[in-house]
Amino acid sequence: MKRIAAAALVAVGMAMSVVPAASAAEGTELTAVRTGLHAGFDRVVFDFNGPRPSVTEYRATSLEHCASGKPITAKGDEFLVVSMRSANAHNYPGPRAFDTPGLAKVKSVTNTCDFEGHLDFAIGYAPKGLSYKITFLDNPTRVVVDINNS
């Protein structure tokens, strides 16, 4: 009987040690997505509640969901996909896809991936080939994407 109780305690202890590690692997959490029109550029800001995620980006002419591979429809002639690692939007209460009628060139913002610490958003714009700049701000953590609109 003592062996069963000891084995049960070990199993519970192992399970409890795994859960926090899995949560930590998901990284910083998205808290807001904001857009704004500025002189010369449209801005998209991703706010986070923790440390800065690592960010890469690429251009695409079509979108698909990262897990299923199913196509995603969004407005824009081209998309800047902003890929944020060690980040997630699991508890993000805001919209995951929306149009941006108040901006000059940015037409949409669409979440294309939120899986195992990999968070992607596609920023749709027109026409193709617009220049962009990605910067970071702290306190709170923000990933800032400026798309040239002039």
Rank of each mutant, 00 (worst) to 15 (best):
K2F: 11
I4F: 14
A5D: 09
A6R: 09
A6G: 09
A7H: 02
A7D: 03
L9F: 11
L9H: 02
L9P: 03
L9Y: 12
V10D: 05
A11S: 14
A11I: 04
V12Q: 11
G13P: 04
G13R: 07
A15H: 06
M16T: 12
V19D: 08
P20S: 06
P20L: 03
S23M: 09
S23P: 00
A24Q: 12
A25T: 00
T28A: 13
T28E: 06
E29D: 13
L30M: 05
A32R: 03
A32I: 00
R34N: 15
T35I: 01
T35E: 13
G36Y: 01
L37P: 00
H38C: 04
A39M: 03
G40C: 03
F41Q: 10
D42C: 08
R43N: 04
F46L: 06
D47W: 01
D47H: 09
D47A: 10
F48G: 06
F48T: 01
N49L: 01
N49D: 15
G50P: 00
R52Y: 04
P53S: 06
P53V: 00
P53I: 00
V55C: 08
Y58E: 12
T61Y: 14
T61V: 10
S62Q: 09
E64R: 15
H65I: 01
C66M: 05
C66Q: 08
A67T: 10
S68D: 05
K70V: 07
P71K: 12
P71A: 14
I72T: 04
T73I: 06
T73R: 14
G76M: 07
D77V: 10
D77Y: 12
E78P: 11
E78R: 06
F79C: 06
F79S: 06
L80M: 04
V82T: 08
S83P: 00
M84G: 11
M84W: 06
R85N: 13
R85W: 04
S86K: 12
A87N: 07
N88G: 13
A89L: 05
A89M: 07
H90G: 11
N91M: 05
N91W: 13
Y92N: 13
G94C: 03
R96Y: 13
D99K: 11
T100L: 07
P101W: 10
P101M: 02
P101Q: 04
L103E: 11
K105V: 10
V106Y: 14
V109E: 13
T110L: 03
T110R: 05
N111I: 02
T112A: 06
C113H: 02
E116C: 04
E116K: 10
G117K: 07
G117F: 11
G117Q: 03
H118D: 02
H118P: 00
L119K: 05
F121P: 05
A122V: 00
I123C: 02
I123G: 09
G124P: 02
Y125M: 10
Y125Q: 06
P127Q: 02
K128P: 14
G129I: 00
G129L: 03
S131E: 13
S131A: 14
S131P: 01
Y132S: 11
F136Q: 11
F136D: 05
D138F: 10
D138N: 15
N139Q: 08
N139C: 01
P140T: 03
V143K: 05
V144R: 09
V145F: 12
D146Q: 15
I147D: 12
N149M: 04
N149L: 06
S150N: 09
